[in-house]
Simulated scan of single mutants.
Amino acid sequence: MPGGNVGADHAIFEQGASAGNVGNEKLVEQKKANPVALLLSSAMMLRHLQFPSFADRLETAVKRVISEGKCRTKDLGGSSTTQEIVDAVIAALE
Results as ranks from 00 to 15, higher is better:
30 Q>T: 02
25 E>A: 10
28 V>E: 11
46 L>T: 08
36 V>I: 15
31 K>N: 15
48 H>L: 02
38 L>S: 14
45 M>L: 15
23 G>P: 06
33 A>V: 09
41 S>H: 03
38 L>F: 13
46 L>E: 12
37 A>P: 00
43 A>I: 08
34 N>W: 02
29 E>P: 00
51 F>V: 11
30 Q>G: 01
26 K>H: 03
28 V>H: 12
48 H>P: 05
33 A>L: 09
32 K>I: 13
32 K>A: 09
39 L>F: 10
42 S>M: 13
40 L>C: 10
38 L>C: 10
22 V>Y: 01
37 A>K: 00
32 K>M: 15
27 L>W: 01
28 V>D: 12
46 L>M: 15
49 L>K: 12
36 V>C: 09
39 L>V: 07
28 V>M: 07
42 S>T: 13
42 S>I: 05
27 L>Q: 05
46 L>C: 13
49 L>S: 13
44 M>Q: 11
42 S>N: 11
42 S>G: 15
45 M>T: 01
50 Q>F: 08
35 P>A: 02
39 L>M: 14
41 S>C: 06
27 L>P: 01
28 V>S: 14
35 P>W: 01
51 F>N: 03
36 V>L: 10
44 M>G: 04
35 P>D: 05
38 L>D: 02
25 E>S: 08
41 S>Q: 04
43 A>G: 09
47 R>P: 01
31 K>M: 13
35 P>E: 05
40 L>G: 00
49 L>M: 13
25 E>D: 10
51 F>Y: 13
23 G>R: 04
30 Q>S: 11
43 A>M: 11
33 A>Y: 01
30 Q>C: 00
46 L>K: 11
31 K>H: 15
24 N>R: 08
43 A>L: 08
40 L>K: 06
37 A>M: 03
51 F>T: 06
24 N>Q: 11
48 H>A: 14
42 S>R: 01
49 L>N: 06
23 G>I: 00
42 S>C: 14
25 E>I: 07
22 V>N: 02
30 Q>F: 04
48 H>V: 00
46 L>S: 10
34 N>Y: 09
51 F>A: 08
47 R>Y: 07
43 A>Q: 10
43 A>H: 03
49 L>F: 11
38 L>I: 09
31 K>Q: 15
22 V>H: 06
47 R>M: 05
50 Q>H: 15
38 L>W: 01
26 K>N: 07
26 K>F: 03
34 N>T: 11
31 K>V: 12
51 F>L: 14
36 V>A: 11
33 A>R: 01
31 K>S: 14
41 S>N: 14
22 V>F: 09
22 V>K: 02
26 K>Y: 02
48 H>I: 05
30 Q>E: 13
26 K>D: 03
42 S>W: 01
43 A>S: 13
41 S>I: 07
26 K>I: 04
44 M>N: 08
46 L>P: 06
42 S>Y: 03
47 R>V: 02
39 L>R: 06
37 A>G: 12
28 V>T: 12
24 N>C: 03
37 A>V: 09
29 E>H: 10
41 S>Y: 03
51 F>G: 02
51 F>K: 12
43 A>P: 05
